[in-house]
């Protein structure tokens, strides 16, 4: 290497800036004749450049993440992963819990622990109404309830507002289903989940047009 280097550098004349310029101008204008070994250098650089561009391109294509602004994992490919990617589903229990505890909603009367307030608001925990027929429960929550109701042997007399679409709370069927699923699985309750489709069916077919609250007697007529 060193012998070629010696040939490849030239003295700068008197060492002034002018000679520095002229020597290098000459070097640019008259490229050194290719000699054995010396011409290897541009070839090496060309090879390295090609290799680096090749590797770089492969790297980028492999880790491009679909060139998607929402992909932060470089190995993720939206095209192949689209099928397996789960659509964002709502956990009914978690969503129901949030709804239950919303200010002004269920927990205001029935309390966070579902125990209600003795003599005023009936409990939800271990209540036969909650864990029993979902047909009755859905109707109750959709439109509300007035008058006397017997829960766990105690009689309560109050008014519960409706929560379904068109009522004051205007909750969607999903929300109604979620909150019911929640109360049916919480505080020791273990009743099956409430289906959104069933809520929709009851609201739009079985009780279509109803706006006034139910009474316990009316509900007990429902299977």
């Amino acid at each position: 290497m060193s012998s070629h280097d010696q040939e490849s550098t030239r003295p700068l004349g008197d060492g002034s800036d002018a000679s520095l310029q002229s020597v290098h101008a000459d070097l640019t204008a008259n490229k050194p004749e290719p000699k054995d070994g010396y011409s290897m250098l541009p070839l090496f650089l060309l090879g390295l450049l090609s290799a680096v561009i090749f590797v770089g391109s492969i790297y980028f294509v492999h880790y491009r993440g679909g060139v998607d602004p929402l992909v932060y994992d470089e190995r993720f490919d939206p095209k192949t992963a689209a099928k397996s990617a789960t659509v964002a589903t709502v956990d009914p229990i978690a969503a129901g819990k949030r709804l239950y505890n919303q200010p002004g909603a269920c927990a205001t009367c029935h309390q966070v622990n579902g125990q209600g307030v003795a003599g005023v608001f009936p409990p939800l925990a271990a209540s036969e109404w909650v864990s029993g027929s979902d047909e009755r429960l859905i109707r109750l929550v959709l439109h509300g309830l007035v008058g006397e109701i017997k829960v766990k042997g105690n009689t309560y007399n109050g008014a519960m507002p409706g929560f379904g679409l068109g009522s004051g709370f205007n909750w969607s069927d999903e929300r109604v289903a979620h909150v019911l699923t929640y109360i049916r699985s919480e505080w020791g309750n273990a009743a099956p989940a409430v289906d959104v489709a069933k809520v929709t069916a009851i609201r739009t077919q079985a009780t279509a047009g109803r706006t006034k609250p139910w009474t316990a007697v009316e509900l007990e007529a429902v299977p």
């Binding site: 998607d68 993720f76 992963a81």
Partner: peptide, 16 residues
Amino acid sequence: YAYPEAANVYVAKSET
């Protein structure tokens, strides 16, 4: 909050 894009993670082939 779990944004939908937070699920854009690679799952190894063997797992799928």
